[in-house]
Write a protein that binds this DNA or RNA. Structure first.
Length: 889
DNA sequence: GACCTGCTGCGGTATG
């Protein structure tokens, strides 16, 4: 039987003429939430409708008077990680409501929402509110916030995979725990008993997150069981996620530990969208660079593809690389001026918005970008995606590939452009991983005390909280399930009394206790707290502005400090002359200079993911066994032959170490193929362990495939290797403590933690506290805590974070265990091998201050060692990197 | 103040 609501909605679908809808026959039931067919909804936001339309249908059924019904209160809260998404979804939802003559208001509440609108939202609530994790917490910091959520029926967390694994995710967990508890005690008899999660799956193209189904019959069954909201309904929680390695865990994290596991529902789709991946093979592989990361040598091939495509996105790994590529295209293909744009995180928002709109309007032929474009609004006209350099992870590549081919039945096409020879093998590994459906997991963050402190003060700012109640609530979250009561008490003590060490500083005594209620009474404290809600911290940057007004974006202070007035540089795709700097703003004017420095930014480091590393090692094993089924492997044959000839091609049960003597000293090269971060830790660890046998001082260099230890001493490597402890995980932590400056690493981590935990105030908007002061104060706090409060939870967190994220301790451990079981193949080599060369180039770059360009030096090195591959003319590096390498073990 | 190739993301001041 079709209910009136379903009928209305069906009618709507028919009017919209969604012929292409892949699940058309399933449309007969309107309760189709979760089906990916909506992918092809004209608005491009299928999942929105998958969840929203059934919800509307139910509302209509429950309220025959829905057209006149007023004051429904907040029905649905939709949380997304991106402000930009809220606007898209709002428009789409509002359109449906208007069409169906449902007098619902759909609103957004983010940092972009004008103050007047925010005030209006407080007075009269919309039926649907779209917001961000940060804004949700700002709402929780409002007086009488429970009123807002009184009538809430459904909570949707969109793009959950983006939040999971971050402190923003923890923020969402905490926010949800509060809303769940509100429901449980509220007058409307909320309970979370029937909450559901639809963890959707990215289609094979990975374009958008689809709520969809793996096994159609099964999901139909599940659909039948769904209970939609009723008048005295229970709060429902939905999560929407791309495919990640740990979807089940993702659901558990979202719903919390108090959620009955048998009530969790997974809905996935099996839309098989074709994805074609093609590696660009350099024409003459023997002349292709062995090292480098810009990849401009393949510009001609890339531009051929661009010319053949309608609209192309060129993804690069760094902002600087985007600028370099944009510049190179403009230089060599001037006809693209006007139909090409650039998009990355340091460009002014206005410019970025313009690019996004121009993409929609099909006014652009090609956009060079970073991951700033791999999430968010759909860019329908894009038919081709080109990835320059290794994407470092399977999921990231899928996400980007999915930006192309957004039509029913369309094939998504993605090209992979290697920036050096061996990277081509990553192309083969990527294809293999995608074929096997191997995706990275997002590991949820646990016990992030800084986020918890912030949350506790947030609640104290609004209506206050009671210690026991809040504790019981907090431990229902996945993140704090293991929070011990005495730890919680420490935090309470910290926000009320400043803990053990800060008691005499008023600044840290934020919260007062009155009749058991923890509350903030100071307006100043409350205001400052609201100003600093959120978990994203960033470095101070310098705004770049035209003399005539108008902003271009931001660069780093260190870059600007290298410029003198009159110097020219390239930024935002333009040639600029630096005029002066005033109040954190660099003023520039137009320049006609053809050449100039290109800024670079210090961002996060992205090591090769452990999943992709594993597949890469598999590929290498195939190579060692002479299996040649991938075109990449076939193309790389000369390189591998040379490697075999000069040294060895390790099989999966072998671990290769190369030993090599040069004027510089004794080089030892190790190849775990585990990503940079692990290599960095392992290099320090092994250097330390060697130095126990024979004291020596090492310099370290590394890339994603291996690392080098260089020393003046003649290291008795055979003897060292005989030592059973060399690759052992025994005493790992102690040895790491000895070999790395763990204190410094933790101190750096602590800066962000202090910021998030509200220990340092970053200043009022527009008049930020100088970076130096922040550093000094967080560093001081770190020292004070370390000295007087050894059990301080925030300091402990800093060490844990350094270990987990900077050292990837877990991976390091696994890698050592693997190596311990492998046969060690020690090869004394005459000259650098194809494996060794790129690592040694890596060390070249930062070895010493020099006026020689890196390019020249690589060429020189190639000549010197007679290596066949020569790094191309691509290293137009601006930054003269010239700091001594790590010394001192 | 360290990173040396290195991404993304969010907030926001107050009165009659």
């Amino acid at each position: 039987m079709i209910t009136p609501g379903q009928k209305v909605i069906q009618q709507w679908y028919k009017q919209k003429n969604w012929h292409q809808f892949p699940f058309q026959k399933e449309m007969e039931t309107v309760y189709l939430a979760g089906f990916s067919g909506l992918l092809n909804a004209p608005t491009g936001s299928g999942k929105t409708f998958a969840l929203f339309l059934p919800f509307l249908a139910d509302f209509i059924n429950k309220h025959p008077d829905y057209k006149t019904r007023q004051n429904n209160g907040l029905q649905m809260l939709w949380i997304t990680p991106l402000r930009a998404l809220t606007n898209d979804i709002r428009k789409a939802m509002q359109e449906v409501c208007d069409d169906l003559q449902i007098p619902w208001k759909i609103a957004t509440r983010t940092g972009d929402t004008p103050a007047a609108e925010k005030a209006a939202l407080k007075k009269k609530l919309p039926e649907v509110l779209l917001t961000t994790p940060e804004s949700l917490h700002l709402m929780l910091a409002q007086k009488e916030y429970p009123k807002i959520f009184q009538s809430l029926q459904v909570l949707v967390v969109d793009e959950w995979h983006e939040l999971l694994g971050t402190k923003r995710g923890v923020q969402v967990e905490l926010g949800l725990s509060r809303l769940k508890a509100l429901g449980a005690v509220g007058g409307e008899q909320f309970s979370v008993g029937s909450s559901q999660v639809a963890v959707g799956r990215q289609s094979a193209v990975g374009s958008r997150q689809l709520a969809d189904s793996n096994d159609y019959e099964k999901s139909q069954l599940e659909t039948a069981n769904w209970k939609l909201p009723t008048e005295n309904c229970q709060l429902k929680i939905w999560g929407i996620s791309a495919t990640i390695g740990n979807l089940e865990q993702a659901a558990e994290v979202l719903l919390g530990t108090d959620f009955p596991p048998d009530k969790i529902k997974m809905v996935r789709a099996n839309v098989d969208k074709k994805l074609v991946i093609e590696s660009i093979i350099p024409e003459n592989i023997e002349n292709y660079s062995w090292a480098g990361h810009i990849g401009l040598k393949l510009l001609p091939q890339v531009m051929e593809i661009v010319a053949k495509s309608k609209t192309t996105l060129i993804f690069t790994n760094t902002r600087s690389q985007s600028e370099i590529w944009y510049h190179a295209i403009l230089d060599n293909y001037p006809e693209y001026a006007g139909i090409m744009a650039m998009h990355h995180g340091s460009l002014d928002n206005e410019l970025r918005n313009w690019v996004e709109q121009a993409l929609h309007a099909e006014a652009l032929k090609v956009v060079v970008c970073t991951s700033s474009l791999d999430l968010g609004v759909d860019f329908r006209p894009v038919d081709t995606v080109i990835q320059v350099g290794s994407p470092k992870g399977v999921a990231r590549f899928m996400q980007r590939a999915g930006r192309s081919g957004h039509h029913p039945g369309a094939v998504s096409k993605a090209y992979f452009v290697p920036t050096h020879s061996l990277e081509l093998l990553e192309g083969a590994a990527l294809k293999q991983a995608i074929k096997q459906g191997i995706f990275e997991s997002r590991d949820p963050m646990l016990l992030a005390m800084d986020v918890l402190i912030q949350y506790m003060v947030t609640l104290a700012v609004s209506d206050g909280f009671r210690a026991d109640e809040l504790y019981n609530e907090v431990i229902t979250t996945y993140a704090f399930a293991d929070l011990r009561r005495n730890e919680y008490n420490q935090l309470l003590d910290f926000i009320t009394n400043g803990g053990k060490t800060l008691a005499q500083y008023d600044e840290f005594l934020k919260v007062e206790v009155e009749n058991g209620l923890f509350k903030v009474f100071s307006r100043r404290v409350a205001m400052r707290h609201r100003l600093s809600i959120g978990t994203i911290t960033s470095e101070m940057s310098i705004r770049v502005k035209w003399l005539s007004g108008g902003s271009l974006g931001t660069v780093e202070e260190s870059f600007i400090s290298k410029l003198k007035p009159g110097n020219t540089f390239w930024f935002a795709g333009r040639s600029l002359e630096f005029v002066r700097i005033k109040e954190m703003t660099a003023y520039v004017k137009k320049s006609n200079a053809k050449k100039g420095m290109i800024p670079s930014w210090n961002g996060g480091r992205m090591p090769l993911s452990s999943q992709l590393s594993a597949v890469f090692r598999d590929k290498l094993d195939e190579v060692a066994h002479g299996i040649e089924k991938d075109i990449e492997v076939i193309a790389l044959k000369p390189l591998f032959n040379l490697q075999q000839e000069l040294s060895h091609l390790p099989q999966s049960h072998e671990f290769l170490i190369e030993s090599f003597k040069s004027r510089e000293g004794h080089h030892l090269l190790f190849y775990p193929f585990e990503g940079r971060l692990v290599h960095e830790g392992m290099a320090s660890l092994l250097a330390y362990r060697i130095s126990r046998v024979r004291p020596a001082s090492f310099s370290i260099a590394m890339n994603d495939y291996g690392f080098e230890l260089l020393t003046d001493e003649d290291v008795p490597i055979e003897q060292v290797l005989e030592d059973a402890d060399f690759f052992s995980i025994d005493n790992l932590l102690e040895d790491i403590q000895h070999s790395l400056n763990a204190n410094e690493m933790a101190r750096r981590r602590f800066r962000d933690i202090a910021h998030i935990g509200g220990l340092v105030f970053t200043g009022y908007p527009g008049q930020q506290v100088k970076n130096k002061h922040l550093q000094a104060s967080s560093s001081l706090l770190f020292d004070v805590f370390s000295e007087y409060e050894p059990d301080n939870l925030l300091v402990r967190q800093a060490y844990n974070e350094a270990l987990a994220f900077q050292l990837e301790e877990f991976r390091l451990r696994a890698a050592l265990q693997r190596i311990a079981k492998q046969n060690i193949i020690l090869k004394v080599i005459e000259r650098p091998t194809p494996f060794a060369f790129p690592i040694m180039v890596d060390s070249l770059g930062r070895e010493r201050l020099t006026t020689e360009s890196l390019e020249d030096r690589i060429a020189k090195m190639a000549r010197q060692y007679g290596a066949e591959g020569v790094a191309g003319n691509e290293n137009k590096k601006v930054r003269k990197v010239g700091v001594t390498r790590k010394k001192g073990f």
